[in-house]
Amino acid sequence: MLDTSPAAGGSDAASELVVDLRAVKQNYLSLQQRLGKSECAAAVKADAYGTGADKVAPALFEAGCRTFFVATVDEAIALRKILPSARIAVLNGLLPGTEQVIPEHDLIPVINDLEQVSRIREMCVAAGRALPAMLHIDTGMNRLGLSPDEMDRVAEDPDLLTGPDWLYAISHLASGDDPGNPENAAQLARFADQRRRLKRPLRASLANSAGIFLGLDYHLDLARPGFALYGGRVEDGKPSPMEPVVRLRARILQVRTVLAGDSIGYGGTYKVTKDARIATVAVGYADGYLRCLSGKGAAYIGDQRFPVVGRVSMDMLAVDVSHADPTEVYPGGYIELLGAHYTVNDAADDAGTIGYEILTALGHRYTRRYIEAASGES
């Protein structure tokens, strides 16, 4: 368990984001165990979902992960410097102008349309070898991937795919976090049908984090979890089976007594009904703590919950600590805003969004601390 005492870590930071690398590795190992013989890759796009790819990706590699997915070429190049021997796939595909850097950095483009197919074939001719690539087939997201019409053309002329070393055919579930949605089975069936039309056996990847929990049929050869690695839920509205990874704590700047009838913060949106003690905390929306958590978020000292009151401002928010032990609430002390008690999933529910947004919004004003030992050692 992470130490939640105000003095934990001994930092002089105004706010601190703690990332538990042990929990990241344990989440990966749990997913790999569930997948059995299928390979478990890792999505580390968006700076490992806001947790810091420079620290998280090596931890995942240490846990056994060898295939990583990012969104952009820039992310891939940065990751290559950290993981020289990993397989790194670029989900956004082979965009014009990236023809040189893809082979230079030994990257794997995820090919999303026939124009990109043509470009990777030309690159293979220029390189004099079969460059690695993955073929993305759209099965219902209508976002990226070869369309049904493009797959018809491939079925009619299989030579369109000659040249590259196709590592996987991939697709993406649109509703994996809703296991009762019939679209999941429909996408699985479409994917199988389209793969059969390729006239060549390709290993396959469909499951994201949620897809891993849909069952063996969805595991195929490779799964690509992201959110679950960072403690995210895998089924909408259900508790997460994964270990929490991040803890956000911030300094109390001031504690004051507010009299009954007084309002707090911008717009006076919250008025106390009786005398209260209010702690002003050094975190705001400029730090990635969403403004829509105004009057909805929660904070913890130890196991005791306290409500966020009034509007979240740029650099500060207010917490009603009327029922706290005065010896535990003081200027300079820490209060926890995200953690095991109030997870990114809980914050997402209160904000009316998804945990992905909570995680990726976490800014870089926080002092970041990475821990691995269960005792909380750095």
Rank of each mutant, 00 (worst) to 15 (best):
V110A: 07
F61M: 09
I88T: 04
I108W: 01
L91D: 02
P58K: 09
R87Y: 05
S85E: 14
L60N: 09
V73D: 04
A76N: 07
I88C: 05
E62T: 10
L60Q: 10
G93T: 06
K55R: 15
D106L: 02
R80N: 06
F69Q: 03
I82F: 06
L83E: 02
G97H: 13
V56E: 13
H105I: 02
E104V: 00
I82P: 06
V56C: 15
N92R: 10
E99W: 07
E75L: 10
D106Q: 13
C65F: 08
L107P: 01
N112Y: 11
D106N: 13
I82N: 04
F61R: 08
A89N: 04
Q100N: 14
L91C: 00
L79F: 08
L94T: 02
V73C: 07
L107W: 00
G93P: 09
V101F: 01
S85M: 06
E75Q: 08
A89S: 14
L95Q: 12
V90F: 02
P84V: 03
P58D: 11
V90A: 05
F69G: 15
V70C: 07
A89T: 09
A76E: 06
R66T: 14
V70E: 06
R80T: 06
I82C: 12
V70S: 08
I77D: 04
P109D: 03
A63E: 08
V110R: 02
C65P: 08
G97D: 15
F68I: 05
F68M: 03
A78H: 12
A57L: 06
I108T: 12
P96I: 11
A71Y: 14
G64Q: 09
A78F: 03
F69M: 06
S85K: 14
K81R: 15
L79N: 10
G64S: 11
L94C: 04
V90Q: 04
E99A: 09
N112V: 07
A59T: 10
E62Y: 07
